[in-house]
Nucleic acid binder design. Structure first.
Lengths: 188, 188
DNA sequence: GCAATTATGTACCGTCTAGTACAGAACATC
DNA sequence: GATGTTCTGTACTAGACGGTACATAATTGC
């Protein structure tokens, strides 16, 4: 009975997410968003309550993906190397759009409780991925056992975000690598 | 001959800076800005070329102040304690407006070259303050001499920004303190 | 008090904003 | 092919946006 929608919703969400991610929430107009998603206004409002509502969907969508991307193949091989790879991938993308979670944390979280919750949920997932890897590294002896795994995972999450900030203005990848190396030296 | 302006320019700049700092550039309208600064449009455009021009003035103004504030009395007493105090003052202001330099780095730096330059200049000042303190600490033996002072100062700048990000969504100050302590453990 | 000069308030410009209303097109069922 | 349902393009709203133009008010030197 119902006519099926013409566009692919996951694809549209993915495209819209990337736009909010790279341009920021306030700087992105609804028309920008629709153009990037490749859909019309009516279709958009048929699925989402508005721009703000879409932001939460985008944050969830991003959170789903980022951990998978950063921690691909993290379960095998060296735990320290897996963690180092997450830092390296930030360095590779220096000067680009950064981390959507951090962007929203900085732009919106201090004045919007709902966004704060969504960002926190995403950062917790990242923290959890670090935690699992740290625990594994502590078992194999790669990572010192004198430090609390939970604290270390939070420290790594914060350090990654610090590196992201620096990567916005610092183009010299060797500088970023030295900073990353210093951050990771805590694990030894 | 010329009629003197009615408002105090430094005060107006300071107020405007604080608004851009707390609300973000895109989310702040020119009218918001004028209201906060307590001046009219004509007066504003008589002094600044526009909203964007004011941003640069605000960034410079902020950069002048933030280092002074964070490193007040940093030259005397323990160097490690002075650095720890900068982290502590971030923790005290958890959930608030964060660091204007980081905010602009995240919101604007990747798509605006001029802002990037202004932010980098500000972060370099912070880095320099850390550098001086680290060098002093290394002389007194408080901070290990095996690490390069310049790298350490960059690491501290990045770590402070990482803590700022976490402080946007994490209200538990003990968690933030543990992360800060882990960051500072690199100095030993 | 007068003229010269400059700061300021206000009205205005065209453009863009998020969001709504609605007509018509496209599909599934029968 | 008719009918009912849903999707989608377009026109529209009311207001906000950054920025400009200009008349008026306020101060100075004389």
């Amino acid at each position: 009975m119902p006519r099926p929608r013409e566009f692919d919703l996951p694809t549209a969400v993915d495209r819209g997410t990337h736009l909010l991610w790279s341009k920021g929430y306030e700087a992105t107009s609804l028309d920008d968003l629709l153009l990037a998603m490749g859909i019309g206004k009516s279709s958009f409002y048929a699925v989402f309550r508005g721009k703000r509502d879409f932001l939460f969907k985008a944050l969830d969508h991003y959170s789903d993906q980022v951990v998978d991307t950063l921690f691909r193949d993290a379960a095998r091989g060296s735990a320290r190397a897996a963690i180092a790879r997450t830092f390296e991938s930030v360095i590779e993308r220096a000067g680009m759009e950064g981390c959507f979670l951090q962007n929203c944390a900085i732009e919106l979280a201090h004045r919007d409780a709902e966004t704060r919750v969504a960002v926190r949920r995403g950062l917790r997932r990242l923290e959890k991925a670090y935690y699992d890897t740290v625990v594994r590294g502590q078992k194999t002896g790669e990572i010192r056992k004198t430090a609390d795994a939970l604290t270390l995972s939070r420290y790594l999450t914060a350090s990654l975000n610090g590196l992201q900030t620096l990567a916005r203005v610092e183009r010299d990848r060797n500088v970023l690598r030295q900073v990353a190396q210093t951050s990771l030296s805590v694990l030894k």
